[in-house]
């Protein structure tokens, strides 16, 4: 289970040059590209795609921010500049289907790009994993066993409430035979990690507690061995929370893609 990849990740440009077309484009996102912790998840998503033999490609250096944080911060100009530039690239490659590693990219491309000329079938990586499990292409075998392990899942706002995706990540965890324990505030009632709405990029306003602490306290109440995430920003907030609570030796915060890759020994 090396950190690095032992295969090439194909780019869209290379594929087109070879006269090929991928079945699905993997939209990595800024966090997945630059954030060290999120890069691990990105590589695990690639490992899963590679493992099941799905023909995929990434944009590589041709990818740029979807514009989500600009839009949530109120800068519609910058958002639409980013969106239209990205749409030009995506349409240029005749992209039909996209899987994202981030709920924010997922929401933006799925819901906000169509009005600007970019219409694609967009899924989040937990939905891809669920599909692959349903199709029998992906199992939980050959790797680390999560059987009976206590896992609690944190719903990212832009996947859960934002787009009503509650089942796919849970189905991916159920496939592990793990013991899924829910937090008091879960699914449509889930509590934000504190990073959304461009909060990731600024200090919080004055208050009596940080949101990620409130959330991690609730997560720790379930006495989990693993806290499962499916968003790179939630990942940062939850990991920080676990560290601040001095629980990072006992409780792991892992993305569902990482858990799936581990369970399959990828």
């Amino acid at each position: 289970m090396s950190e690095q990849l032992n295969f090439e990740v194909p780019t869209m440009a290379e594929m087109i040059a070879k006269g090929e077309e991928p079945e699905i484009l993997f939209w990595v996102g800024c966090a997945g590209s630059y954030d060290e912790r999120a890069q691990k998840t990105t590589r695990d998503i690639c490992k899963i795609l590679h493992h099941v033999g799905l023909k995929y490609a990434v944009l590589g250096t041709e990818e740029s921010c979807t514009g989500d944080p600009a839009k949530r911060a109120g800068n519609e100009f910058l958002f639409q500049m980013q969106a239209m530039t990205n749409i030009e690239v995506l349409n240029g490659y005749n992209v039909k289907k996209i899987v994202t590693g981030c709920p924010h990219c997922f929401n933006t491309i799925k819901n906000e790009y169509p009005g600007l000329g970019g219409t694609y079938e967009v899924i989040h990586h937990t939905q891809l994993i669920q599909d692959l499990i349903n199709e029998g292409k992906l199992k939980a075998e050959g790797g680390e066993s999560f059987k009976g392990k206590k896992i609690t899942y944190h719903d990212p706002c832009y996947l859960g409430r934002g787009n009503d995706v509650y089942e796919a990540p849970r189905k991916a965890l159920e496939a592990l035979d793990a013991q899924l324990v829910e937090m008091k505030r879960c699914k449509s009632n889930g509590l934000c990690c504190g990073a959304g709405g461009a909060q990731m990029f600024k200090e919080p306003e004055k208050g009596n507690k940080d949101i990620n602490i409130e959330r991690i306290e609730e997560a720790l109440e379930t006495q989990p061995q693993v806290i499962a995430a499916s968003c790179p920003f939630c990942m940062t907030m939850l990991s920080d929370g676990v560290k601040l609570k001095d629980q990072d030796q006992n409780v792991k915060v892992l993305d569902i893609a990482e858990i799936t890759a581990r369970a399959n020994g990828l």
Partner: peptide
């Protein structure tokens, strides 16, 4: 700063 980064680097960082 985040907005400036997106504008210049295509990423919020």
């Amino acid at each position: 700063a985040m907005l400036g980064n997106i504008e210049n680097n295509g990423a919020p960082w």
